[in-house]
Design a binder for these strands. Structure first.
Lengths: 163, 163
DNA sequence: GCGCAATAGTTGACGTAACAACTAAATGCT
DNA sequence: AGCATTTAGTTGTTACGTCAACTATTGCGC
């Protein structure tokens, strides 16, 4: 039962792809930290809230969408709350649960940050790609996601609600 | 000077791609931690050394290949040295510099870890993709890397030495 | 060849992430 | 109804990454 090693084409793809995967988060993080005093994870968290109904999500649901563990999200939301960007309230329907809601101030911060962020995404990802490659990238990601995220936790944004 | 927002195709690609970029490192890390007691970064560091001439690299060169800052690498290499996987020696040609060399034990550890790691890479990345998609992925990564890594620091492995 | 800037690397302080332990509320079994 | 299990979330500890400060060596300008 020997291991099936990577052939030349696979190795070429892998070295490049792993480099992109390592470099991209740092690039996005650097821009957001410099321009908006937010980590990419914090921005992503606020962005998820901003697109939710009533700008509100349960902690568990928010953790799934952001690919965070609950402890991690709990710490991050506490810090965001200290900064006045989010407010936590007990969920009326389930007393165990907590609702995280984007404040007006938080909304303004995401809105302001989004400009620079989208520009960075364009600069680093879409500008260098052809329309065809953007289509290919969508197909590739769609092929990988079921294996990486079997529960579809991060797919809530673009998957129709499961039947 | 309003921001150029993402159109539908771009948004579809972005949400999926960012999910992959967030999920893949965690998946690789989990496998390596469980099976080889190594983080992906530690594995990658050892792997870079294992492919270098004499299994040795200067700290600066190693930092570039692994996309690490020098302080980060210094800490990681110290821990790896404590575990007997790497040995640091002063560089004879330049007394400021330090050479990191993979020990025999370190070699065995990478070799042992590589099986499970390659299997994980297959499972998460190559098995779900067609040959054509692997080719496309190479092209996409090649298009992105110049923007993400203008100095070509992480490209040393597959780029011919710059003229 | 002396002084000063640049380079190579280490160290320590601080912030954030992962993991485990914990509290509290809802569900389910009988 | 009553107790055990599961679920939701928080808190504390430990490990790792980042940043700034520091030492030591090299190379440049004159």
């Amino acid at each position: 039962m020997s291991t099936q090693w990577l052939d030349e084409a696979e190795r070429a793809a892998w070295l490049r792809f792993i480099a992109v995967v390592e470099l991209l988060p740092g690039a996005l993080d650097t821009q957001l930290r410099a321009d908006a005093k937010l980590t990419h994870f914090e921005y992503f968290t606020l962005a998820m809230l901003s697109e939710a109904p009533d700008r509100t999500l349960r902690m568990t649901s928010l953790a799934q969408r952001t690919n965070a563990t609950l402890p991690r999200l709990s710490h991050v939301v506490r810090r965001l709350e200290d900064r006045g960007l989010v407010r936590r309230t007990p969920c009326p329907e389930d007393a165990r649960a907590t609702n995280a809601k984007l404040t007006d101030e938080g909304w303004d911060v995401v809105a302001a940050a989004s400009h620079g962020h989208v520009e960075a995404v364009r600069r680093y990802v879409f500008d260098p790609l052809t329309r065809e490659q953007i289509r290919q990238l969508t197909g590739i990601a769609d092929a990988l996601l079921p294996g990486l995220d079997p529960e579809g936790r991060m797919s809530a944004l673009f998957e129709p609600p499961k039947s």
